[in-house]
Design a protein around this nucleic acid. Structure first.
Length: 104
DNA sequence: AAATTGACGGGTG
DNA sequence: CCACCCGCCAATT
């Protein structure tokens, strides 16, 4: 596995319950400012194998974006169960739920 | 080995 | 607000 992929996996695993991160945010932390698509690919192919909290990742607008309809529902359910709040438009409230790790 | 594929993002108009 | 384009790059085909 590539170092970048490894970092992305670690970052995703570090997202606490009740909080979310965006694809771009993860990519930037992993060292590739425009690498959101790699994050997409990683979640797409490795979330099961590594037991990643894939449901804590949303797009930059706070929307749940998965192709499979069933999975969209499951993701929202998981998040709500963890206490993530949703705005009326079906977006997570990024203002209060975005996870910003310590950068030290 | 070359082409395609993504749960995206930001800029532009 | 919407539509469009292009960058990004490992994994998969």
């Amino acid at each position: 596995m590539q170092p970048y992929t490894q970092r992305v996996v670690e970052i995703i695993k570090s997202i606490p319950e009740g909080q979310v991160m965006t694809y771009g945010q993860i990519a930037e932390l992993a060292g590739s400012r425009r690498g959101a698509r790699q994050v997409v690919r990683i979640l797409h192919s490795l979330s099961a194998a590594y037991g990643l909290p894939w449901h804590r990742v949303v797009n930059a607008k706070g929307e749940i974006v998965i192709k499979d309809e069933e999975s969209r529902y499951v993701q929202q359910l998981y998040l709500q169960r963890e206490g993530v709040t949703f705005a009326g438009n079906g977006r997570v409230d990024l203002e209060s739920c975005r996870y910003i790790p310590d950068r030290s």
